[in-house]
Design a protein around this nucleic acid. Structure first.
Lengths: 221, 221
DNA sequence: ATGCACTGACTGATCGAACAGTCAAGATGC
DNA sequence: GCATCTTGACTGTTCGATCAGTCAGTGCAT
């Protein structure tokens, strides 16, 4: 767990502080203290607060998306094409488990969720650079697996799926509060076994009603 | 549009600045300038930055949840029980349209999305106070309409639904970017006609696989 | 009607604290 | 001895909050 060099220690401390307080709420002093180094060292290694945040963001994102890409390749490399469920598994599992190594709470997931839902220039460009290319691959994969899915609907499907995932990654503990403790939004496996059928069914449901200008009448099927 | 008194002008300006920069990124000076009043007046009327944020949050939330509750009452007052689709409509439509009065972008929706996904004490207590009670009503309504839905699964269903909604309310424009402009995440009707069947199908899909310890095999149904 | 006491709304100036970022100098390792 | 790493001391700026004080309006006693 302990970092061998200062750069990694800074990244780890920054990840924690950014996850807990957001970009604006985090302070360079706090990060330096957490890393056990002088504040000036953060600027020496990363230049600015903004660039430090980008480094924190890129470190996990690159690892996550490398694995997502590998999973996609492997799924379509098989003789039998993948099921929708497999795609959703590939979409979320790497993110849910990144930085989730052992101890409590997935810090990076919170950063990712906050960044994905923000609309400032920094957040937009980070998501665009690190997640849009792989997003397009997943959208295309959705259409390959579910050919009746329209072009625009595939994008909606992806956005909806990400929405579900981001909220679970924020792991605010609200599910536990609303359920009297029965639901644990920190439990990756519990979430995955629910989230996969939910989204898969949602996408298939989107296909059924696609192109219909008004809401369907017989929804109880 | 113009505010008759200073308090409302401050709330309007604060809503805009908080929506654009978040709680920590917003400054009282910026809000005061936006409202056209002295900075000291914000403290005179609201006491502190924190309390001003709570006032901004409460103003729209109370209106939203009053309408949501009214819609729920009306749905279950009908002779025929509501469809799942009707519940989802009641869940999101009031929020999507609150503060969305005319001009561009729904500022409050962004505040709400950011607050819902954050896990600091302020966000948690605001969501808990303003949204948990009505959330429990929706969760109960889900089970009434879809009786095969388990107790815990109804909470998961609610969380997933909120996740989809929050991401769309953040309205980052990403859907448009990923679709080459075909999808507009600022268009409430376009979102609602997609989001309702998606979530309804997702919840029904959750029912099908509930209790199954491992992922289903025949997912192509 | 007029002078007086009081209130709520509002302001400009200013506080100490915390902020990101800078820099010359020291430590460390090759 | 040179380059990389690291530090403490420091800069100027901005932050939320506070303060004494202005001003219009109101009730009231005379």
């Amino acid at each position: 767990m302990s970092a061998p060099n200062a750069s990694t220690a800074i990244l780890d401390a920054a990840e924690r502080v950014f996850a807990l307080h957001g970009f604006d709420g985090a302070s360079m002093r706090q990060i330096a203290t957490g890393a056990g180094v002088a504040q000036a060292l953060l600027h020496y290694h990363f230049g600015s607060k903004e660039k430090l945040f980008e480094a924190v963001f890129a470190r996990r994102s690159d690892a996550i998306n490398a694995e997502r890409a590998a999973r996609l390749d492997s799924l379509f490399g098989d003789d039998a094409g993948p099921r929708l469920e497999d795609l959703i598994e590939a979409l979320f599992r790497p993110t849910m488990e990144a930085g989730h190594s052992g101890q409590g709470g997935n810090l990076f997931s919170r950063i990712l969720a906050a960044t994905a839902n923000a609309d400032d220039e920094r957040s937009r460009s980070l998501i665009g650079a690190h997640y849009d290319p792989i997003a397009l691959r997943f959208i295309e994969a959705f259409r390959r697996v579910e050919p009746r899915l329209g072009e625009a609907d595939a994008v909606w499907a992806y956005m909806f799926a990400i929405g579900v995932g981001m909220t679970m990654m924020a792991a605010t503990g609200r599910a536990g509060r609303l359920s009297g403790g029965a639901c644990d939004d920190g439990n990756v496996d519990a979430i995955m076994t629910r989230i996969v059928p939910f989204i898969a069914a949602g996408i298939r449901g989107l296909v059924e009603t696609a192109g219909a200008p008004s809401p369907p009448r017989g929804g109880r099927a």
